[in-house]
Amino acid sequence: MKTFSTGKIAIAYDDHNPEGVEPPLVLVHGHPFDRSMWAPQAAHVGRSGRRLIVPDLRGYGGSTVVTGTTPLRTFAQDIAGLLDHLGVAEIVLGGLSMGGQIVMEFHRLFPDRLRGLVFADTAPQAETEEGRRARNALADRLLREGMDGYAEEVLPKMVAPANIRRFPALAEHVLGMMRTTSPQSAAAALRGRAERPDYRPSLSRVRVPALIVVGGDDEFTPIGDARLIHEIIPGSELVVIEGTAHLPNLERPAEFNEVLSKFLDSIPQER
Score class of each variant (00 low, 15 high):
Ser236Gln: 11
Val92Pro: 07
Asp14Pro: 00
Leu72Asn: 10
Ala134Gly: 03
Ala226Ser: 14
Thr69Arg: 07
Leu250Pro: 12
Pro32Ile: 07
Leu109His: 03
Glu270Cys: 12
Asn17Leu: 10
Ser266Tyr: 13
Ile164Gln: 06
Ala139Met: 03
Val88Asp: 12
Arg193Pro: 06
Glu129Phe: 05
Arg144Gln: 08
Leu170Ser: 07
His230Gln: 03
Asp112Thr: 15
Glu153Asp: 13
Ala39Trp: 15
Arg252Val: 14
Gly95Thr: 06
Met98His: 03
Asp218Met: 04
Glu19Ile: 01
Gly146Lys: 15
Val239Gln: 14
Thr69Pro: 11
Tyr199His: 15
Tyr199Gln: 04
Pro71Tyr: 12
Phe75Glu: 13
Arg271Ser: 02
Gly95Ile: 03
Pro23Cys: 00
Val65Met: 07
Asp84Glu: 14
Pro18Phe: 00
Asp15Met: 02
Arg191Ile: 08
Met98Tyr: 04
Glu152Met: 13
Ala245Pro: 04
Val154Ser: 00
Ser185Glu: 06
Val54Ile: 04
Leu142Asn: 04
Glu242Ala: 09
Glu19Thr: 15
Leu238Ala: 04
Lys2His: 13
Ile212Ala: 00
Val28Ile: 13
Glu19Cys: 08
Gly146Phe: 15
Lys157Asn: 11
Phe106Leu: 09
Met158Ile: 02
Ser202Asp: 08
Glu105Asn: 06
Pro268Val: 10
Gly7Pro: 04
Arg207Val: 10
Ala189Pro: 03
Glu255Lys: 12
Phe119Thr: 06
Arg113Ile: 09
Glu127Gln: 09
Glu127Lys: 11
Pro209Val: 01
Gly95Pro: 07
Leu72Lys: 08
Gly176Cys: 03
Glu251Thr: 05
Glu258Gln: 10
Asp56Gln: 02
Tyr150Gln: 14
Ile267Thr: 08
Arg51His: 12
Glu251Ser: 06
Glu152Ala: 08
Gly62Phe: 00
Arg73Asn: 14
Phe75Gln: 11
Thr69Val: 10
Ser182Pro: 03
Asp148Tyr: 07
Phe75His: 15
Arg47Pro: 01
Gln125Ala: 15
Leu247Val: 05
Glu90Leu: 00
Ile267Ser: 02
Arg35Glu: 12
Asp15Asn: 03
His230Thr: 11
Val103Glu: 10
Gly116Gln: 05
Leu260Trp: 01
Asp148Glu: 14
Ala210Leu: 05
Glu172Asn: 14
Ser261Gln: 12
Pro201Thr: 02
